[in-house]
């Protein structure tokens, strides 16, 4: 089991918008979107620190978050069960209680 994680599988999370400046691994198209945590991968070096020559410590927890495609793209052309899964670090995620919480 991976300990001390802020989120668990099944939690709804919203991706922060422009949370950091500089190098990051959070694509713009998921920023501000709400998805569900579907996997907790554990601790990995923080790429935002490593990109500037550090060792990436402290580690960040890496999650897999699942989004409905219809929530990501206006006029998504496929069926509503299509999803997109993406790997995101903990500091980019904030807790939400419902999908459309403002």
């Amino acid at each position: 089991m991976i300990e001390n994680t802020k989120f668990q599988i099944g939690d709804l999370v919203r991706v922060r918008v422009n949370h950091t400046s500089g190098h990051c691994r959070t694509p713009q198209f998921v920023q501000g979107k709400t998805g569900e945590v579907v996997a907790v991968f554990g601790q990995f070096p923080n790429p935002e620190q490593r990109a500037y020559g550090s060792n990436g410590l402290p580690h960040q927890i890496l999650y897999q978050v699942c989004f409905d495609q219809t929530d990501l793209w206006v006029n998504y052309s496929g069926p509503e069960q299509d999803t997109l899964r993406i790997d995101l670090f903990e500091h980019w995620l904030e807790s939400v209680s419902t999908k459309h919480e403002v």
Partner: peptide, 12 residues
């Protein structure tokens, strides 16, 4: 001599 994220940042 450098790490993968430094390399990615250079590409970006």
């Amino acid at each position: 001599h450098f790490n993968l994220d430094e390399f990615r940042r250079a590409i970006e």
